[in-house]
Design a protein around this nucleic acid. Structure first.
Length: 273
DNA sequence: AAGGGTGTTGAAAG
DNA sequence: GCTTTCAACACCCT
């Protein structure tokens, strides 16, 4: 369920629920989720440590413990649930963190794409993927001038450029469609064709859309079971994404669905040039 | 009922 | 390099 607003919501919810808890043991039932080190080392290194803080960068979540940092990416369908340790494990609960207070944090991931990796405190910026992240839309310095060389020197479709996490950290398939609709840009336009004014629009709407989505707790589409902290309400604000066949809220033209860079893409063929 | 699609990303191939 | 395609996996919907 991960784009920046959903990950932010998960992070905030987790902070309220598990800060200060001590990990007694970790049960890994799907080994491929743990990256970089053997599972035995992963569980050993986390056991006995207290969760002191939880932070987010792009779509990555950092669990800061005393002496170790766990870097998690939810990929397509990763979710966390807090449950009593007496609850039976469910089918897709692949990593279970058992706390000393007999609660458990369950990592649920139907497709098993999510990742967890351990870093020494202070080196988490070097984690794979994190090391190449571009600026978040809210970061100081994010704006037209930052985007200019990254966008205007690329022939790739503007949508693909904005999905590239080394360019903008945090935008994903939903919010890119929404940003490009508000900026009135055809998702297939090559980066080289994007004007300075367009870049300004992209920067402004990236901030605006993500801020509103965070405020509403992210989006819940595809009727997911509500996961920890993620029963968002931004889906009610979506203007194009998932709206194929519906009228454009601006001009009434029927919203179309196409494919850009292999991703399902919703847009208004009249408004977005 | 097989095939295409799904809020991601990185490895491989061109 | 840069850009595109595809695989990782399980499930849902035509």
């Amino acid at each position: 369920m991960p784009e920046l607003p959903e990950v932010e919501t998960v992070k905030e919810t987790l902070k309220r629920q598990i800060l200060g808890k001590r990990i007694d043991k970790v049960d890994v039932r799907c080994e491929r989720i743990v990256r970089g080190i053997p599972v035995s080392e992963f569980t050993h290194d986390l056991s006995g440590h207290v969760i002191l803080d939880i932070t987010r960068q792009g779509k990555y979540i950092f669990f800061h413990c005393d002496g170790i940092v766990m870097v998690v990416h939810l990929r397509m369908e990763g979710k966390f649930f807090l449950k009593p340790d007496t609850d039976p494990y469910e089918k897709h609960e692949h990593v279970i963190f058992v706390f000393s207070d007999h609660t458990t944090l369950r990592y649920h991931d139907v497709r098993k794409f999510g990742t967890m990796e351990l870093m020494s405190p202070g080196t988490e910026q070097l984690a794979k993927g994190v090391d190449k992240l571009g600026l978040e839309p809210f970061a100081t310095g994010f704006g037209k001038d930052y985007l200019k060389p990254l966008v205007q020197k690329s022939k790739r479709p503007i949508k693909s450029i904005l999905l590239d996490q080394t360019v903008v950290a945090g935008l994903g398939n939903i919010y890119v469609d929404e940003v490009l609709f508000r900026a009135k840009l055809d998702p297939k336009r090559p980066g080289t064709s994007i004007s300075d004014h367009d870049l300004e629009q992209i920067a402004v709407f990236s901030k605006q859309v993500l801020a509103k989505a965070i405020e509403l707790g992210g989006s819940t589409i595809r009727s997911y079971v509500s996961s920890l902290g993620v029963t968002g309400r931004f889906q009610n604000e979506l203007k194009v994404h998932t709206m194929v066949g519906k009228p454009c809220p601006v001009c009434g033209t029927v919203i179309e669905k196409t494919k850009v860079g292999g991703r399902g893409t919703y847009y208004c063929p009249h408004c977005q040039k």
